[in-house]
């Protein structure tokens, strides 16, 4: 009798820091970080749009770098510090980017929004003075099909100005 793929391989134990909390999980070694976040850990704010690293809906922050979580294995999270959309807002409030996205109407359907917020937050942490061309370049890995990007760029600029 054959086994299911999950049963046929030994799961690996992974310890990481996830949204500020020490976190431990077991995952089959072939599972992507995206699958671990959504299925194993129930963090469905990180979205799957293409599963091949082209849409950016699954963007997370790993040790200060933005990563398409569909292209990274869950097992590779060992020892890493990871932030997902669920970790962007401070307790009881919103991050200035989240507030700006609401005020500037920077989302329509909202499916790409978590990825954009995680990407833009990483940019402003590295480059608090990022200008429009720089913001456009940085966010070029995140696809949005609704807004035409205009209001997203304006929201990031607004948050940038308010964070100063």
């Amino acid at each position: 009798m054959t086994q299911t793929p999950e049963q046929s391989v030994r799961k690996v134990s992974v310890q990481c820091t996830l949204n500020g909390q020490p976190t431990e999980f077991l995952a089959a070694p072939y599972l992507s970080l995206l699958e671990v976040l959504r299925e194993t850990l129930g963090l469905t704010g990180t979205k799957e749009g293409c599963n091949d690293g082209n849409c950016g809906a699954c963007t997370v922050n790993v040790d200060g770098r933005i990563v398409d979580s569909c292209l990274m294995l869950g097992a590779e999270a060992e020892g890493k510090t990871i932030e997902t959309i669920e970790g962007v807002a401070p307790a009881g409030g919103l991050h200035p980017l989240q507030q700006a996205f609401l005020e500037e109407a920077a989302l329509q359907c909202g499916i790409c929004t978590p990825g954009f917020l995680v990407s833009a937050k990483a940019l402003l942490e590295r480059e608090p003075d990022a200008d429009e061309p720089r913001i456009r370049l940085w966010l070029a890995g995140n696809l949005c099909r609704c807004t035409g990007y205009d209001k997203i760029i304006r929201a990031v600029e607004k948050a940038r100005d308010e964070m100063k």
Partner: peptide, 17 residues
Amino acid sequence: IRHDGIDKVLGRAVYGS
């Protein structure tokens, strides 16, 4: 501000999958 916006910027909104 749209009424469903808060769930969508927090990653809490429940989509198809």
